[in-house]
């Protein structure tokens, strides 16, 4: 299981910059970010190769932060990859709450992160279908 670093933040300017600045200063590489915005406040999810370290650094900097289970898969960066992924999920009768992705190497490698009510099951189903699962590095 992969851990996303979830940061609670009020919807105010400069908040995103502050989080990423702190992580950059501490040499934490961010490969993907997604923002779940609820109007007055939001939860920022940071994906990094050092989630536990990132969590501790942000906590020490007085952020409201916690780790959240997430399923991250490595897929080919080509037409039909995501469609294939969702077909597996659909056939297994699983539900995905939100998802985000990013290209790591143009034309060959992409990461795709999913949140689900049953992350363990989702991960198992994808692995059974030969999808490469990213573990916490």
């Amino acid at each position: 299981m992969y851990n996303a670093v979830s940061v609670f933040m009020e919807n105010k300017s400069g908040k995103l910059a502050k989080v990423t600045e702190v992580l950059a200063k501490n040499n934490i590489n961010i490969f993907m970010i997604d923002v779940d915005d609820n109007g007055q406040f939001g939860v920022l999810r940071v994906f990094t190769d050092k989630p536990k370290e990132a969590r501790d650094i942000l906590f020490d900097e007085n952020f409201t932060v916690a780790l959240e289970k997430s399923v991250i898969v490595e897929i080919e960066d080509k037409v039909g990859s995501i469609s294939k992924l969702f077909k597996i999920v659909d056939e297994a009768g699983l539900n995905i709450k939100d998802a985000s992705g990013c290209v790591i190497e143009q034309g060959s490698k992409a990461y795709f992160a999913m949140r689900s009510d049953s992350p363990e099951k989702l991960e198992a189903v994808l692995a059974d279908n030969g999808i490469k699962i990213l573990k916490g590095f």
Partner: peptide, 15 residues
């Protein structure tokens, strides 16, 4: 104020 020590990290829980 959200209690920093009790934060779930999950938007749905928070909502």
């Amino acid at each position: 104020e959200v209690n920093r020590n009790e934060f779930s990290g999950n938007m749905d829980v928070l909502k």
